[in-house]
């Protein structure tokens, strides 16, 4: 599968403060790639460099096969960008905003624009400055979806929105998924989980992992082991590096297995704990995976 977006050894420093430390990222075409990570991980900076809004200190980035440092009008005709922090022409009404943008895009689909206005229930005659945050974000997204971009980049689009608006936005996005590659950075992991095909976890300026959502969900498991009391954790050198956040109470040991394999993992558990009374293995939601990773990496840091 070819890449819609890629970054190689990307470094960005703001006045000698490193934000990105050799980031490598690959977003496959036609994927919905969720870029997650704690605050200050470098998600927005990565996106701004990919969109040629910021210059990287070093490294290489490509967007739709073009060097992102040279993204020009001909490339931007096929790219949509929506960010919670964008400054919009607030004096424009929704209708005028869409009409104004139309001539910039040869692929502008008037019927699709009409459909999005209806679907998002946008008030055509209202100025952007008078829209609620949710409506404002919908208008922004509609203006990016109406020309059926090949790539859609969304920076924290769900931040501060109520569940209904999120649902509307996701619905709008899902209709474009498939024909459009979507890169979305968000803290709203439950929402991302519902439609992302790939996940990248960014922390301290590096991509800690990047993989398909199905594979990620399959390999992360919360494991509870009931042993004969008192439960003790094996010595550090015996504790596998893929087992995170270990906890032990009287007869219970709990941890997160990050490389769960139904054939080998139970045997490994039994080998380490000796007399095991019961092993229960539970799938984890993305949010739990994110918290586990964030806490583990902050502890190692």
């Amino acid at each position: 599968m070819s890449s819609a977006l890629c970054a190689q050894d990307l470094v960005k420093r703001f006045r000698n403060v490193p934000v990105l430390n050799g980031l490598n990222l690959d977003v496959p075409e036609a994927s919905v790639f969720g870029l997650i990570g704690p605050n200050g991980a470098g998600k927005t900076t990565t996106i701004k460099i990919l969109m040629n809004i910021l210059k990287a200190t070093s490294g290489r980035t490509e967007v739709l096969g073009a060097d992102s440092r040279h993204l020009g009008p001909s490339d931007l005709k096929h790219i949509g960008y929506v960010s919670e922090n964008q400054e919009m022409p607030e004096w424009m009404t929704v209708e005028y905003f869409l009409a104004y943008l139309k001539p910039f895009y040869p692929t502008w689909d008037e019927a699709r624009a009409e459909e999005l206005v209806r679907q998002f229930n946008l008030p055509r005659g209202r100025k952007l400055r008078h829209l609620s945050r949710g409506m404002w974000m919908k208008a922004s997204l509609a203006s990016a979806l109406a020309y059926r971009p090949r790539l859609l980049v969304l920076d924290e689009p769900f931040s501060g929105l109520d569940p209904l608006v999120r649902e509307d936005l996701i619905e709008g996005l899902l209709e474009s998924a498939g024909e459009t590659t979507i890169l979305i950075s968000s803290h709203d992991l439950a929402d991302i989980e519902s439609f992302a095909s790939h996940i990248g976890y960014l922390d301290r300026g590096r991509l800690q992992f990047s993989e398909e959502m199905t594979s990620l969900s399959a390999r992360f498991r919360e494991v509870e082991v009931i042993v004969e009391p008192p439960a003790t954790l094996p010595a550090d050198r015996q504790w596998p590096a893929t087992w995170l956040r270990p906890e032990a109470t009287q007869a219970l040991v709990r941890f997160v297995e990050t490389r769960f394999d139904p054939e080998h993992s139970p045997g490994e558990i039994r080998r380490l704990f000796g007399k095991v009374q019961q092993i229960s293995v539970n799938p984890m939601p993305l949010r739990a995976i994110f918290v586990t990773l964030a806490r583990s990496t902050s502890r190692t840091a």
Binding site: K48, M51, I53, L54, G72, P73, S74, L76, K77, I79, Y81, S83, N85, Q86, E87, M88, P89, L101, F104, Y105, S140
Partner: peptide, 17 residues
């Protein structure tokens, strides 16, 4: 109307020549 300094303006990610 199209502010040049900064990185948040909507128009910089639109196909303006």
């Amino acid at each position: 109307a199209e502010v040049l300094p900064g990185d948040r303006q909507f128009w910089i990610t639109r196909p303006y020549g």
